[in-house]
Design a protein around this nucleic acid. Sequence first.
DNA 1: GCCAACGTTGGC
DNA 2: GCCAACGTTGGC
Length: 151
Amino acid sequence: MANWLVKTEPDECSIDDFAANPDKPVVWEGVRNYQARNFLSDMAVGDEVFIYHSSCQHIGIAGIVKVVRAAYPDPAQFDPVSPYFDGKSTADKPRWQAVDMVLVDKLPRLLPLAEIKSLPGLHDLALLKKGSRLSVMPVSQAEWDVILKAV
DNA sequence: GCCAACGTTGGC
DNA sequence: GCCAACGTTGGC
């Protein structure tokens, strides 16, 4: 059992998209970075994940979702119409992975980035590392607890 | 819109 | 294998 954080632009997919249809798994596709992909592959069913809204007006952690289907080949990589299409990917040798997730809770308030930065014990969190662009990252139990407590 | 930081590509 | 050029990320 592990915890994670994923970034998303809310215009693309926000916590409200999870909340709008709580029984329908959201396909977390389009991750096109190898390190992030490897973390996706490490996710297990039942793992809980912070949803982080980036590149938007209200930047921060918006809610919690959980994995309901572990990593499988990202369907978008085979779809020529998709912006995530990858011509170098084949069915027997897929490059990219997706997971399915559903809502656990929308946080009662969005926890802003500035506030996350002020919390103790998060120095190792990739989110706060200078220049880090990692979009899928592990969150330790201690880090998870610190963040949750601050909400 | 700016720009620093990063990852990927491709020529050599 | 090196590294310059390029495209992308993402906070401000």
